[in-house]
Design a protein around this nucleic acid. Sequence first.
RNA 1: GCAGCCAUAGCUCAAUUGGAUAGAGCAUCUGACUACGGAUCAGAAGGUUUGAGGUUCGACUCCUCAUGGCUGCACCA
Length: 573
Amino acid sequence: MSLQVNLRQRVADALRTAGIDERFAAVAPAAAARFGDFQTNAAMVAAKALKKNPREVAASILTHLNVEDFCERPTVAGAGFINFKVLDTALSDAVNAVRNDRRLGVESVQKAKTILIDFSSPNVAKPMHVGHIRSTILGDSLSRIARHLGHRVITDNHIGDWGTQFGKVIYGWKHLLNRVALEQTPIDELVRLYREVNAMEENDPVLKETVRHELVKLQQGDAENLEIWKQAVSLSWKEFERLYGLLEITFDERLGESFYNDALGPLVDRLLAQGIARESEGAVCIFFPETPALEEKPCLIRKSDGGFLYATTDLATLEYREQRWHPDAVWYVTGAPQQLHFEQVFASARKLGITTDLLHIAFGSILGEDRKMMKTRSGENVELGGLLGEAIEQAMTVVTEKNPDLSAAEQHEVARVIGLGAVKYADLMQHRLTDYLFSWEKMLSFQGNTAPYLQNAYVRIRSIFRKAEAELSEGISYASSPISIAAPAERALALQILKFGEVLHAVLEDQRPNLLCLYLYELADSFHSFYEACPILKAEDRVRSSRLALAEVTAEVLKTGLSLLGIGVPERM
RNA sequence: GCAGCCAUAGCUCAAUUGGAUAGAGCAUCUGACUACGGAUCAGAAGGUUUGAGGUUCGACUCCUCAUGGCUGCACCA
């Protein structure tokens, strides 16, 4: 049991003895070090409910509070804050416990859920661009964290392999295809076809109709068009796989929209038969008269020309997932603009009797330097592949400059870990709902609150151990010596290490990896302060052993935490 | 028109969900380099949290109104 959980329990006990509802028991790290290590605001919250004086309630709680075995005498401050300062011995014990715990103080959830996470979802024959970054990186990180906390997670890449873009691609394939280019750079060629046809039909209604007809032929099963489609999908997958491999992202399920195609017609028929959907203006819609916000926002599931829509596919997909995985929750990691769409889909799902916890994990848009949203067809989108390459390249120049002694192979690997880490961290560190201002300069800057800063903290610790192993004579082992907390910088670092047990649960509570980023940054910061203030290798035996062990736990937490963000750590950099 | 999201230091962002003197990073300034890796640390300066009311012991946070911005709203995904 962690110190914080233990304290919460003691506060609950005190509340119960004092005749106050123990649900008010909540303990948080102290707002500032001058107040102590932990605090509870229970007295003020309870006083509010009971219409009593907060300070009197605090005093009453204090008389029933029994924490002498691991805290100094608690004090009441301000409007009714109760502050705790943990004894050095108890703090030492707690950090030692984390050090000896394979899970570093992170407890698994009480009730493991099956969570299906839908993210990334690039479109075939279109480049993966910056717009896919957030979904991909955020979804991957949430998957890792949920899994780490003991949930059963299914990652599902719902590829856009059946969209209207195929009319353009097929027309282009038949009339504009450059076979050599297709061999050498297949995705670029597919994108070129898409873009050229898209531009050509802009002012040509006749061509537009021809292109649309190619799409209809594909949908009706035309052999030639189907073959072109299959090749386009296969070529796109190769490129996706390359990028996912680079990013070290994996999927358990990778069924594209086309997989659900045959289910769409029967689904709409069934919804009509059950009276859930009805015809309106030639289209088939689901209405939500009972939901005020959706009263005038029907969900279209079949067009008047018989075609199906985004919502139809999403509903069919959900039904499939229900019977295939029986999930407790389905999370959709997509942009905030799709909020209405998901409200409609979720409301429709409820009409279908689906009670699964459905969640739209929305995130803000990626903005260009003009502060306008980056649009899919602006033609100025930064492609993901190029972006990652650029990040690695820039990391490479820094690495070769800072550490020319590394072998070429190691420089490449370090540049990859740093470059990709920088891109991922720059995205994850922000609250997911705030719009993300895309900036090469910021993303690739290795100063301040960035992945390289965190990686550097880890590398330094590894460096200390390399030096220690070289200097210490054989037989001397620090591994068996306990951590003993004394100096202020040691206290601060120890307390920060202990927070790891809480932060992951907080992240999953609101699907916010930025809380983990913030935590790791503060951990690295605490370590660097400790590193400056407390000599490790130059200290006398017992202190040296303790500090080495403290550094070791720090490294483990950094490595584990970063891995949960999908970010690696090098041994040298 | 209706709805959703948002407005915090010069810039980019936080704020443990209603708690203590609103915190970081860039940029600026002052210190610390024969260094356990300076990709660092210690410190300074920078704020009427868009504006006006309200709720209470206490508001960046909740409510109302206003202003400004982004996004969505019937046959794209």
